[in-house]
Design a protein around this nucleic acid. Structure first.
Length: 318
DNA sequence: AAGGAGCGCAACCGCAAAGAT
DNA sequence: GATCTTTGCGGTTGCGCTCCT
């Protein structure tokens, strides 16, 4: 008989619901400084009244560097539809094809937009393809949906899976790895005056996930990540207005004093908390334009990553 | 201007797999 | 091998925003 699991958190001792700006800043600062080794103990160490699960979700879906935000492009949506036919509701698997996108985001866009669109298309007798697509919705949780997939999709999927082992996507990076850079990245580190990480020869296992946060070497193809950052950087500031709006709702929230003790205990500098200037936050009138904005990775992301990867060892030291 | 409906999305919940002891 | 813990995933919920009446 299955033993009842211990609850991940105790009601009344943790905050629930929407994350405040301060909470997010504390979590982000802590993880960028120390990485995340153990989600359950992280909130306590970081001084957050949240359960570990909630912290993990907030980090993965919202705070993680390199996340792409904003509307999905037509191409992305088409790809989602095709991948959904191939995989069903395997959102994590589908999300692995979209660096910077989260499974939650893809699941949401499917449930709120694409599914309806396919159903609508299904009512139109003009398209055989969309008829197939719509019919797969009802069987979306079943792997048998594969039978509806065109050869093109199957082939591209096969190719994707092969390439999956040749590349480390942004998506895969944050989950507990220490990555060492290949030699060809040397110039990058020199340019940025960042201490060059240790270099070791990659082997065939390096792209496999290491459950114990072991050191993993980045393959040469990791370079594309840094190419994406367009170094030397073009200073871009394209904040997610929706996020700003959400966060502005928490302007009045102040961090409880009780949060300070963990930082004293651990001798961690208290993260600086910047309260958004609500005057400066204006609602965009053109919603479409707003949503079409994509926040591309920039140099700050790289610095955050570098910092993050540097401090993953925090959790490995007893 | 008020309020109700619909929608989008962040967050929660519970389960299962994987890992640790 | 059994038991316990942690993590990841997919389904679902509910809040807040926008639009419509």
């Amino acid at each position: 008989m299955r033993r009842k699991r211990t609850p991940c958190c105790v009601d009344g001792q943790v905050n629930r619901g929407q994350w405040s700006h301060e909470e997010s800043e504390i979590l982000k600062a802590f993880i960028l400084k120390h990485g995340h080794g153990n989600w359950r103990s992280l909130p306590k160490l970081a001084g957050l009244r949240r359960c570990g699960k909630s912290c993990r979700l907030r980090w993965i879906n919202y705070l993680r560097p390199g996340l792409k935000r904003g509307n999905f492009t037509k191409e992305e949506e088409d790809t989602i539809i095709q991948l959904h036919q191939a995989h069903g509701n395997k959102w994590a698997q589908i999300a692995s094809h979209f660096p910077g996108r989260t499974d939650n985001e893809i699941k949401n866009v499917w449930n709120t937009d694409l599914k309806k669109r396919l159903v609508n298309n299904n009512s139109s007798p003009s398209s055989d393809v969309t008829n197939h697509q719509a019919s797969s919705i009802s069987a979306s949780s079943s792997s048998s949906a594969t039978s509806l997939v065109s050869n093109d999709v199957i082939n591209s999927e096969k190719q994707n899976q092969e390439e999956e082992f040749k590349e480390i996507l942004v998506e895969d990076m944050p989950i507990g790895y220490k990555v060492t850079a290949p030699q060809s990245l040397g110039l990058l580190f020199e340019d940025l005056q960042i201490p060059r990480p240790p270099i070791s020869e990659p082997d065939s296992q390096t792209t496999q996930r290491e459950p114990n946060h072991d050191q993993v070497n980045a393959p040469q193809s990791l370079e594309f990540l840094f190419e994406d950052l367009q170094i030397p950087p073009r200073p871009i500031s394209t904040p997610d207005s929706q996020a700003i709006q959400r966060e502005s709702d928490h302007d009045q929230v102040t961090a409880p004093e009780a949060l300070e003790f963990p930082f004293e205990d651990l001798q961690i500098p208290l993260p600086s908390i910047s309260v958004p200037d609500s005057q400066a936050i204006q609602r965009e009138s053109d919603h479409d334009q707003l949503c079409s904005r994509m926040v591309e990775p920039e140099l700050s992301d790289f610095h955050e990553w570098n910092n993050y990867l540097e401090h993953q060892s925090f959790w490995n030291t007893p």
